[in-house]
C-alpha cells in the first residue's frame, strides 16, 4: 500500500498527549521484565516474543479449526465436543453425494445441500457477471475528466461500509408490499409485485441487493487500476487519431486485464460465501429459493432441530476446496503479473 503522507504533527501531538501518559506507564512497566527476557533470548530471539501472541491466537482460532474440520467431517452425532462424537469415516460425504439422479437435486438425500449448491452457483454467475460489468462501467465513468471525482467515488463506495444487517433491513423495507419500490412502480403506472415472496423475484432481489452492497468496492479497485495506466498512452493514441472504442479495446482493457482478473476472482471468492445480507433480507426464502451454501452450513451445524455438525463440516470442506482453487488461481495471477512487471 502507499504510505499515507505522515499526518500532521500537531494532531499527532494532541492525540499523543491524551493517550500517552497511561500507555507510557504500562509500556515502561513491561520494559524491565522484557529486558531480562532479551538478555536470555538475544535480539533475534525477541522476534519470537513479538510474533508469539499473533501466532498463538491465529493457531488456536484459524489453523486448529482448519485442521480439526476434517476430523469433524468424519464423525457423527449432534454433540459439539469432539470427544463425544463417534467416528463414522466418510459417511457424511457419501450422504452429501447420495442422489437418485444427479441432474435433479430433489432426488438427493441431502436435497437442501444440492439446492443450496444450485442457488449458490446461479448466484455466483449472475452476481459476479453483472457486478463486474457495472463496476467496470462505474470505474470508466469515474476515470473520465470529472469534477468532484472523489465525491462521486464516495457515492458509489458508500454502501460498502454498511453492515449486512443494515443492508438487508433497508432493502427488505423498500421491497415490502407497501414499500417504496412498489409506490414508484405504481406512480409510473406499472404493476407492483410482492418482491420477497415470489421465488424468482426474491432471488433477483438477493442478487441486486448484493450487487448494490459490494459494487463500489470493486469499482474502486478498478478505478485505481485505470488511474495507473500512463496518460501518455492515451495522448499518443489521440495524436494518431485512434477512435475511442478502439482505444478502449486496444489500450484500456489489455492494460486493465490483470486488475480485472484479480477483481473477478475476489468477487467469485466473496460470492461463493454469500450469506449475511441475503439472510436478513429473505431468510433464505420463500421456501429455499434464496438459501445459499453458507446458510446451509450454518443451519445444519447450529440452527436446525436436527443439527448435524459433521455434515456441516463436510459441506464446509467442499466449499473450502472451491475457495482454495480460486485462491490459488488468484495467487497465480498475482505471480504472473508481478513477473511481467519485473521483466
Amino acid at each position: 500500500m502507499t504510505p499515507i503522507a505522515s499526518s500532521s504533527p500537531a494532531s499527532n501531538r494532541r492525540l499523543g498527549s491524551i493517550l500517552f501518559v497511561p500507555v507510557q506507564f504500562v509500556m515502561t512497566l513491561i520494559d524491565a521484565p522484557l529486558r531480562a527476557l532479551q538478555k536470555l533470548t538475544g535480539i533475534s530471539g525477541m522476534a519470537m516474543f513479538f510474533l508469539a501472541p499473533n501466532m498463538l491466537i491465529f493457531g488456536i482460532f484459524v489453523l486448529l479449526p482448519l485442521a480439526i474440520n476434517f476430523v469433524y467431517s468424519m464423525t457423527g452425532g449432534t454433540a459439539f465436543f469432539l470427544a463425544d462424537r463417534t467416528f463414522i469415516g466418510f459417511d457424511q460425504y457419501s450422504r452429501l453425494f447420495e442422489c437418485g439422479n444427479y441432474l435433479d437435486p430433489l432426488s438427493c438425500q441431502e436435497d437442501a445441500f444440492w439446492t443450496a449448491v444450485g442457488n449458490t452457483a446461479w448466484f455466483v454467475v449472475l452476481q459476479v457477471t453483472l457486478m463486474i460489468l457495472m463496476a467496470l462501467g462505474t470505474a470508466l465513468i469515474l476515470n473520465r475528466d470529472l469534477r468532484a471525482r472523489s465525491f462521486w467515488r464516495a457515492v458509489f463506495f458508500f454502501p460498502v461500509l454498511l453492515s449486512p444487517v443494515v443492508v438487508g433491513l433497508i432493502w427488505k423495507w423498500i421491497l415490502q408490499r407497501q414499500g417504496l419500490l412498489n409506490f414508484a412502480l405504481f406512480e409510473m403506472g406499472l404493476e407492483p409485485h410482492n418482491w420477497l415472496t415470489d421465488r424468482t423475484w426474491a432471488f433477483a432481489a438477493a442478487v441486486a441487493v448484493s450487487i448494490w452492497a459490494h459494487m463500489g468496492f470493486y469499482a474502486l479497485i478498478l478505478l485505481a487500476g485505470l488511474q495507473a495506466i500512463p496518460k501518455d498512452l492515451y495522448e499518443a493514441a489521440e495524436m494518431d487519431g485512434t477512435k475511442a472504442a478502439r482505444v478502449f479495446w486496444r489500450i484500456t482493457l489489455p492494460l486493465l486485464a490483470p486488475n480485472l482478473l484479480v477483481v473477478v476472482v475476489l468477487a467469485l471468492i466473496k460470492a461463493v460465501q454469500v450469506f449475511d445480507e441475503v439472510y436478513v433480507l429473505t431468510g433464505g426464502g420463500p421456501g429455499t429459493s434464496t438459501m445459499f451454501l453458507t446458510q446451509y452450513i450454518y443451519e445444519t451445524g447450529f440452527a436446525s432441530q436436527l443439527r448435524n455438525p459433521g455434515l456441516a463440516a463436510a459441506a464446509s470442506i467442499l466449499m473450502g476446496l472451491v475457495l482454495v482453487v480460486l485462491t490459488l488461481f488468484q495467487l497465480g495471477i498475482g505471480r504472473r503479473t508481478e513477473g511481467k512487471r519485473k521483466r
Binding site: M55, L63, L66, Y72, F81, L293, F302
Partner: peptide, 30 residues
C-alpha cells in the same frame, strides 16, 4: 528481524488470508 522460520510464518499468514469463517465455523465453535 531475520530469523529461521520467518518465511514460513509469512507463508502461513498469506495462505490463510482467504480462510473465511464459513469454512471453519463448526470446529471454531467447538
Amino acid at each position: 528481524y531475520e530469523f529461521r522460520g520467518r518465511s514460513v510464518a509469512m507463508l502461513i499468514i498469506l495462505a490463510t488470508l482467504m480462510v473465511p469463517l464459513s469454512v471453519i465455523m463448526v470446529p471454531l465453535y467447538s
